[in-house]
Structure formats: C-alpha cells, structure tokens
Simulated assay, not measured.
Amino acid sequence: MSITVERPTDIHRSAHAPAARTAGCRILRRHTIVTTDGMDGVLRVAAELRACGGLVKEMAVDVREGVGCSELTCSVSMTAEEAAEFATRLRALPSVESVDPY
C-alpha cells in the first residue's frame, strides 16, 4: 500500500505563475551591449560587470580594428527588477551605445 500526499499549493498551481511570484526569481538573462571607443569601451563595461560579483555567468566580446562599435554579450543571473537597473546602470557609461536583452 502506498500513500501519495500532494501539497495544496501544488494542486491548484497554474502553468503561468502570477508576476508577483516570479518578480523576485533569479534567472540567467542575456544582454548585448554595444560600445564605442574600442577596447577601452569594452573594458569599462567589463569593469562594471565585475562589480556585479559572481552574477555574470558568461561573457563574449567582439572588438574589431577599424570598426566604430564593439559588441559584448553576457548572461547575468538577476531578477526582472535588477535587469532594468542593470540596463540603466550600463547606459550611464559614456561609451555604451545600447543595452539590449534577448
């Protein structure tokens, strides 16, 4: 004989949790950051990402000689609220042209 006990919160849970429940959840969020000033611009962004501590899980940089803009792609573990603050913080850097989540 076996007995299965389900928690009441699991029985009525919908496939899409309300925003209030998911707002504080940390997930990996990918961003593409376009910078100017070549390697100096990328290093400014990298220093700002370093200030995030261990939340940056991956980062890739594309800097090419003779091209006006460079691209930095990163995955950062953060909540939705932190993601908005993150984008605002990076856009404040003088060499950042855009911060786009994808």
Rank of each mutant, 00 (worst) to 15 (best):
D62Q: 11
P18Y: 02
A80F: 09
R21P: 01
V34L: 10
C74Y: 01
P94W: 04
L55W: 05
R50K: 07
V63H: 09
P8M: 06
C25Y: 14
S70D: 04
G66W: 12
E82F: 03
P8C: 02
E48Y: 15
S70C: 10
P8G: 06
A46H: 12
V63I: 09
R29F: 02
T36H: 08
V99T: 06
M59H: 14
P94D: 02
V34G: 02
D100A: 15
V5Y: 13
A92P: 00
A92S: 06
R29H: 10
S2P: 07
D37E: 14
I27E: 03
M59E: 03
S95T: 07
V56D: 05
K57Q: 15
I27Y: 10
L28N: 10
G38D: 03
A47D: 04
E71Q: 08
D37H: 10
R64Y: 02
E81I: 14
V45F: 02
P94C: 05
A17V: 07
I11Q: 11
P101Q: 10
V56W: 05
D62S: 10
C25W: 14
V45W: 03
G68S: 07
G54Y: 06
G66Y: 07
G66T: 04
M78E: 05
V56I: 15
V42A: 06
T73S: 06
T4H: 10
D40S: 11
A92L: 09
P18N: 00
A51P: 00
S95E: 01
M39K: 03
R50F: 08
E48D: 15
I3E: 14
S14Y: 11
R7T: 14
T36F: 08
D40A: 12
A87Q: 04
R7P: 10
G24F: 09
G24E: 08
A80T: 11
R91F: 03
G66F: 04
A46D: 08
R29N: 06
A20G: 08
R13E: 15
R30I: 01
A87C: 06
V99K: 02
R30S: 02
V42P: 01
E85N: 12
M78G: 00
A17E: 06
P8W: 03
L72C: 03
G66A: 07
V45H: 00
E82L: 10
R7E: 11
R30N: 07
A17Y: 04
L28D: 11
T35Y: 03
P8A: 09
P94V: 00
H12R: 14
C52Q: 13
D40L: 09
E65V: 14
G53W: 03
G24C: 04
L28M: 13
T73R: 02
E71F: 04
I33L: 11
A20F: 13
E85L: 14
T36D: 13
E97C: 12
A46R: 07
L49N: 04
V63R: 01
A47E: 04
R44A: 00
C52S: 08
M59C: 13
E97Q: 11
